[in-house]
Simulated scan of single mutants.
Amino acid sequence: MTPAIAFALVAAAHAGFQVTVTTLVYPALVEVGPAAWDTAHARHSRRIVPLVALLYAGLVGSGGVLVLDGPDVLGWVGLVATAGALATTAVAAAPLHGRLRADTDDLRHRLLLVDRLRCSGAVLGALAATASLLTSR
């Protein structure tokens, strides 16, 4: 398997995960009432962290190998867009999660916005990585 194929596969898995989080998981989470918030948020965090760690490790590893292999222009677009999604998690989504409480509607709204940005980066990254495979043949 080439580095470009490996990265495209992991980027596609990441995009699918991110679309699911954006369209299903976060909307349901932010609708939880104040009485159940702490429990729901703690469960969400415990359940999602292992999958995030696995996907992000795969992206960093396959992306690093792809960089060393010398991607084409679309490969670079995929790498940069995916890196943007990961950076958005590190600098915005994760810190917001840490500050969320039952009565923080403003922070919940900001988390949804940040998550849409992160999802856009993940989808663009997967599309560009896949397009790179199609154009390199």
Rank of each mutant, 00 (worst) to 15 (best):
G61L: 08
V25Y: 08
L59R: 03
G33C: 07
R118E: 03
L86Y: 08
H97T: 04
R116T: 04
D106A: 13
T39L: 15
C119Y: 03
V114E: 03
V60F: 12
G63T: 06
T130P: 04
A12M: 08
H109D: 13
V65N: 11
H97C: 04
L117I: 15
L79T: 00
P34N: 10
H97M: 04
D103K: 05
R47A: 15
V73W: 10
T130G: 04
D115W: 01
D103Q: 13
G98K: 00
V21F: 13
A36N: 12
V52H: 12
G58F: 04
S45H: 14
G78M: 04
G58A: 03
A53G: 12
A35T: 13
R46K: 14
R110N: 05
A35E: 14
V77H: 02
A90S: 15
V30G: 03
S45V: 12
L74A: 06
A102P: 00
L51S: 14
G63I: 01
A102F: 02
A42M: 12
R101Q: 09
L79I: 02
A90Y: 07
L54N: 05
G63E: 00
L79S: 00
T22N: 12
G61K: 06
R116Q: 11
V21H: 08
Q18Y: 06
R110T: 07
L117G: 14
V49P: 11
L74H: 02
A92C: 13
W37D: 01
T130F: 02
L68G: 10
G78R: 00
S45Q: 11
H14V: 10
D69S: 14
I48T: 12
L51C: 10
L74P: 05
L66F: 00
F17R: 09
A87P: 03
V52A: 15
V21W: 08
R108N: 07
R99I: 09
P27Q: 05
H41E: 15
L107N: 05
T20P: 09
S62D: 07
V80E: 01
L74G: 01
A13P: 04
A83C: 02
L68E: 08
A28L: 11
A57T: 13
V25W: 10
H14T: 12
A87I: 12
A12P: 07
A42N: 15
R101M: 12
V60N: 08
D69Q: 11
R108K: 09
W37K: 04
R101H: 13
L74F: 05
A40P: 02
R118I: 06
D72K: 03
A122L: 00
A90T: 12
V21T: 13
